[in-house]
Design a protein around this nucleic acid. Structure first.
Length: 805
DNA sequence: AGCACGCCGACT
DNA sequence: GTCGGCGTGCTC
């Protein structure tokens, strides 16, 4: 019996980030449950907001008078107890508003729209009434916002107390319905009706015969028309005569309806795959909340292991969740899962419309989908009875959400695994250092697939030193070696992929003669060029120096801003190889929905010889005719001011090398670099993840970075740069007094894009190992920052940030 | 976020 | 004197 409820209201501010108590009107006491959406009055004036019931209590903890719920929006909870608990944990863990976490877990359509209405409360002059309201006594405010003259008059009338604003929440969640019919009478009754009909009423006779055969079935009107060959008007007539009943049936919008499912059988596992499977499957059958790292080289057949583990999970009557990065959520992988598990698969990805997403979510909620494949936010899929969570390419940085709540999918997956006593499998060819280190420490189990599944040979990887090339031929993105190789492919009618590592397009300085990159003397991280202030700055410690004219190492004048775009490269390519047909792929050419796939299809159909693109082409593509992969500028990612630069570059080079020669033809990979001696490049050439891991760990240890230390970034912003800086210095000082001895504070430093949307950003990095008080300190800081500083000052806290620029 | 309350400048 | 600017505090 719910007398009072605790509600999290949809007002995302720190001051309202707590449950509010509401009285439950008598007629709703049996209905309202935790996890349901409600509409509540909030604040002065006629204002309503949406909220979530997070608790049912008997006695109020709040002294003041309680307002009653205005309405309950759901008949059943939209957030089950598990996810309710998760949302609270997540808010605390990521320093986010509880309400934001709740919305993050749900399809967009469940976020009610706040509509404003203008309501007449006192008699208006006839002209005002007619001009503003017509016959009505209220109008929707949004319809007036463009008419400035009306707006002005309304404000005047409001002052006179003749009108007022009213806010209401409108639920956007609509199930798509379709008309269906059902027979209402018995076979014999229809027989009687039939006898009464005139002989020439053939259509009606056919209808009656059709209904007689229908029994209890409910058939959509469309299907009924097709089956009976009758027109819609006959069905209308039948309804009038009481022969049939029309009803509205809910229908799921099926994003896959056009794609046929061809069932597939499990493939035979090779010895390595089988061994990995055998290690993991007991934890599914006798449920254990273990974590497994499945470390398999590209092409080793991880997916087949996933599919068979999922099948084993379904066999125990439980459900399974497969998480993949958005970029590799291609029709291929979805197709494989669907062909194995059929209709019980739900797919969640960014390409779905709100309606489709809502419907897939409802299928999961209703228990109709037992297998979910999806990107980041699918980790919140309301699967009951979870028996297995798989996270493919677990090292991908897109698993971390870069807006509030700044959660990492892995962190949520591990939480849910624990909650359900279900194993979590983290798959990757190049695991994140955090994960690999935990496996080394025995916290995670580790299974290795060291060989390619289908006896494919690894391509030959060559490194080309660009320094002599550029000395000899001037500015160019193409070495002789690469040009020769491209030429050969053109003549043989084979295809090539060229990767432009454009993440380096930003702002660091490198010497074109010796490859020297200007680094911070304190941090061993590249300095970032700030053109606005004409300075080189370190984003970690704040070190600053002038922009050099000469290379400090070799005194060359050819030290410059480094970076290049696909457009420029495409132009150069057209110049060097005019006969080649080139497809350019980057954010500019793939902005429109479906364009990405269209370009890939074109390439797949051999309508081009060369695919030139950024990161997005590095992953998961598999074209049999591609025998050459060229990486134009391997270093640009490497020299970013980010301690994960090496890890990302290694991953990128490994992935892209896996693209060449996957079928019967031998592949060749050419990596162009100004740093041929760099360990990342060399180890990527040898495809030796384990040695890379060992070496990188040493560096991380020396510099006190993850996984040896945890990191948190505080980002403060304000329209006035001075205010932002001052507030962040104050925060640093406050924190300093309470931190553990080992904890390090770096900054505040301005962000490389110091001004964004007319706000200035300053950041503080915190590195810590064990600091019992830090979390609480940060939560407190989040609260008091609102009061302590200018109202326009905004503070965000990002635990374990993925990028440092 | 939206609203009331309250304290200072410039107008009927 | 009052209208209205926006800084501050509060919303069950």
């Amino acid at each position: 019996m719910a007398n009072l409820v605790q509600v999290i209201v949809d007002v995302p501010t720190m001051q309202t980030n707590q449950p509010y108590t509401y009285a439950v009107p008598k007629q709703l006491t049996d209905l309202v449950q935790p996890g349901m959406r409600v509409i509540v009055p909030f604040g002065a004036g006629k204002r309503e907001v949406q909220g979530f019931v997070v608790g049912v209590i008997d006695e109020s903890t709040y002294d003041g008078p309680l307002k009653p719920l205005a309405a309950v929006m759901d008949l059943a909870p939209v957030v089950n107890p598990e996810l309710l608990q998760l949302s609270q944990w997540l808010a605390n863990e990521t320093y986010a508003f509880w309400i934001s976490c709740l919305y993050t877990m749900l399809p967009n359509l469940l976020k009610g729209k706040t509509k404003r209405w203008v309501e007449v409360i006192d008699e208006l002059s006839e002209s005002d009434q007619a001009w503003l309201f017509g016959e009505e006594n209220e109008v929707e405010f949004d319809e007036l916002t463009h008419a400035v003259d009306k707006l002005e008059r309304l404000i005047q009338l409001q002052r006179q107390g003749k009108i007022r604003f009213r806010y209401a929440v409108v639920d956007q969640a609509r199930a798509k319905t379709v008309t269906a019919i059902q027979a209402t009478q018995s076979f014999e009754k229809y027989e009687e009706s039939l006898a009464e009909l005139p002989k020439n009423a053939t259509a009606q006779r056919q209808l009656l015969a059709y209904l007689q055969n229908l029994g209890d079935q409910v058939v959509t009107l469309k299907v009924a028309q097709e089956q009976s060959g009758l027109r819609p008007d006959i069905f209308r007539l039948g309804e009038h005569r009481g022969w049939l009943r029309k009803l509205q049936q809910e229908q799921y919008r099926d994003p896959m309806k056009d794609q046929a499912i061809t069932p597939s059988q499990p493939l035979a596992l090779n010895a390595e795959q089988q061994a990995a499977y055998d290690q993991i499957v007991p934890d599914i059958q006798q449920p254990q909340a273990t974590v497994h790292l499945l470390q398999g080289v590209t092409g080793s057949g991880k997916t087949e292991v996933y599919l068979q583990l999922m099948a084993a999970t379904l066999a125990t009557g439980k459900s399974a969740l497969l998480l993949v990065p958005e970029i590799s959520l291609t029709p291929q992988i979805v197709g494989r899962v669907r062909s194995r598990f059929g209709e019980q698969v739900a797919v969640l990805h960014s390409g779905l419309s709100n309606g489709e997403r809502y419907d897939e979510w409802r299928r999961i909620q209703a228990g109709e989908a037992k297998v979910v494949v999806g990107a980041r936010s699918a980790v919140f899929a309301p699967l009951a009875n979870l028996g297995l969570i798989i996270m493919d390419e677990e090292h991908e940085s897109s698993y971390k959400q870069d807006e509030s709540p700044r959660y990492h999918t892995r962190q949520v997956a591990l939480w849910r695994g624990k909650y359900h006593q279900a194993p979590v499998v983290l798959g990757s060819a190049t695991p994140s250092l955090e994960t690999r280190a935990r496996a080394a420490a025995g916290v995670y189990k580790r299974e290795v697939l060291a060989h390619r599944a289908a006896a494919k040979t690894l391509p030959q990887v060559e490194i080309v030193d660009m320094r002599p090339e550029v000395q000899r031929r001037g500015e160019t993105n193409f070495s002789n070696q690469l040009l020769t190789a491209l030429h050969a492919r053109l003549q043989r009618g084979e295809q090539s992929i060229l990767l432009l590592n454009r993440r380096g397009f930003s702002s660091f300085i490198m010497c074109r003669d010796c490859g020297y990159v200007l680094k911070c003397p304190n941090c061993d991280i590249s300095l970032t060029m700030h053109l606005d202030t004409h300075a080189m700055k370190c984003h970690y410690c704040g070190h600053e120096e002038g922009i050099p004219q000469l290379c400090p190492q070799c005194q060359s004048r050819r030290i410059r801003y480094y970076g290049t775009g696909t457009e420029k490269v495409a132009a150069e390519l057209a110049d060097l190889l005019p006969q080649a047909r080139v497809i350019r792929m980057d954010v500019d050419t793939t902005r429109k929905k479906g364009q990405h796939q269209a370009l890939l299809d074109q390439f797949g159909h051999h309508e081009a010889d060369i695919l030139l693109g950024t990161q997005m082409i590095a992953k998961g593509l598999d074209y049999p005719d591609v025998t050459l992969v060229g990486v134009l500028n391997a270093d640009t990612g490497l020299d970013l001011p980010d301690f994960r630069a090496g890890e990302r570059t290694f991953d990128l080079l490994t992935q892209v090398s896996g693209r060449a020669g996957r079928a019967d033809k031998l592949g060749e990979v050419i990596i162009q670099t100004f740093n041929p001696q760099n360990y990342v490049i060399k180890l990527a050439q040898q495809q030796d993840y384990e040695r890379f891991f060992a070496q990188e760990m040493q560096l991380r240890k020396l510099a006190a970075y993850p996984p040896y230390y945890y990191t948190v970034r505080l980002m403060g912003s304000h329209p006035d740069e001075k205010v932002a800086a001052k507030a962040m210095f104050t925060i640093r000082q406050q924190l300093q007094t309470t931190l553990a001895a080992e904890t390090q504070l770096l900054g505040p430093t301005p962000r490389s894009i110091a001004r964004l949307k007319n706000r200035y950003y300053y950041q503080i990095m915190i590195k810590y190992r064990a600091d019992a008080r830090l979390h609480q300190e940060l939560l407190t800081l989040m609260h008091q920052a609102q009061q302590q500083f200018d109202r326009q000052f905004q503070l965000s806290i990002d635990p374990e940030p993925q990028y440092f620029m």
